[in-house]
């Protein structure tokens, strides 16, 4: 009986509100993919947190020592890997030694080590120094209690490394404290900066407990609103957030700050100072590669919101 009754054709309003999900996902995949094949440099205005991040990193004395707390894994590779790569390029070009550790995830140290290996190989191809594990950086691995670990780092950084073994390539395990990275290090204040690359709540753990070393964060896009208040209050010396932050850093690495020339980036805060970049070197990475695609996907989102609301408006008008 019901078969005899033909279903009424959908109105435009109903069609707009009932687009099949696989179709929307399909469009999204296409829109996210096609721009990746085109290398287009979008116009950009670097924001103050990124400028501060770059300026403070560039002001670190060549050959000094820092700590990198890497708390990201492949689940946020899209944002965190680009951040880590940009940071490593800056540190390696300034010959800065670093201690690597993680308080966020057991997978994080290995993911960070893989990234270090990739970046040092790329830098070596362009005449850069090969960063050797144990000699130029030392990996302390994973610490399960972030709270206790950061308090220990703040109070006695050597006690944190005591008993920890590093596993450099082509050699047996070595005491982390024997590494040249720890030479002359008595307290955490001997490190010039504490960098946190994170996609989890370890940002707060560190902020609450580390008082004897300046800090800069590299966080995922979703964490930017929260961390901006820490940057504004001066708790962070600089902040790099999401793909926008990475794109800023990649631009800054190309032209520096307050240097005359094409694509000049100026900053009132550093007026009278000229912070150099590395023109001609490989400065672009995931930030530049993803920025165009991100704009396209966000445009698609806006269109989808307009289409959905238009459908709702039309169906309400029809009902009235």
């Amino acid at each position: 009986m019901a078969m005899d009754q033909q279903a009424a054709p959908l109105t435009l309003a109903e069609k707009l509100q009932s687009l099949p999900k696989p179709m929307i996902y399909g469009i999204l995949l296409v829109v996210a993919t096609i721009p990746l094949f085109f290398s287009v440099k979008l116009p950009n205005k670097c924001i103050d947190p990124s400028i501060d991040f770059y300026a403070q990193a560039m002001k670190l004395p060549d050959g000094s020592k820092v700590i990198i707390c890497s708390d990201w894994t492949n689940s946020t590779r899209g944002e965190s890997k680009g951040e880590m790569e940009a940071l490593l390029r800056i540190l390696m070009r300034k010959n800065i030694k670093f201690v690597l550790l993680s308080i966020g995830d057991p997978q994080a140290p290995q993911v960070a080590k893989d990234t270090i290996r990739e970046v040092t190989s790329a830098e070596e191809l362009h005449g850069g120094k090969h960063y050797k594990e144990f000699e130029d950086y030392v990996n302390l691995g994973y610490f399960p209690s972030g709270e206790g670990t950061i308090v220990s780092i703040n109070n006695n950084v050597r006690s944190v490394a005591q008993g920890k073994k590093d596993f450099p390539e082509g050699s047996g395990p070595k005491d982390a404290l024997q590494s040249p990275v720890f030479e002359g290090i008595k307290s955490v204040s001997d490190f010039k900066m504490f960098f946190l690359v994170t996609a989890s709540s370890t940002n707060r753990t560190v902020l609450e407990r580390l008082t004897n070393c300046p800090m800069m964060y590299m966080v995922s896009g979703v964490m930017v609103p929260e961390n901006t208040s820490y940057y504004a209050s001066g708790q962070l010396k600089g902040l790099c957030g999401g793909v926008k932050g990475v794109y800023d850093l990649e631009n800054l690495m190309e032209v520096g700050i307050n240097n005359p020339g094409p694509g000049q980036i100026t900053s009132d805060k550093y007026k009278g100072e000229s912070i150099p970049g590395w023109p001609g070197k490989t400065n672009t990475g995931k930030g530049t590669a993803y920025y165009l695609a991100l704009h396209f996907t966000l445009a698609l989102l806006i269109i989808a919101v307009i289409v959905g609301n238009l459908g709702m408006y039309l169906s309400k008008r029809r009902a009235n």
Binding site: L36, E79, K81, V222, P225, E226, G242, V243, L298
Partner: peptide, 23 residues
Amino acid sequence: AIFGSTVMMRFTLLIDRMYFIWI
């Protein structure tokens, strides 16, 4: 603003996977 940042981040993760597959 937080929701906007969240959406932007999720899109970036998708873009990264597409980059990995296609590029």
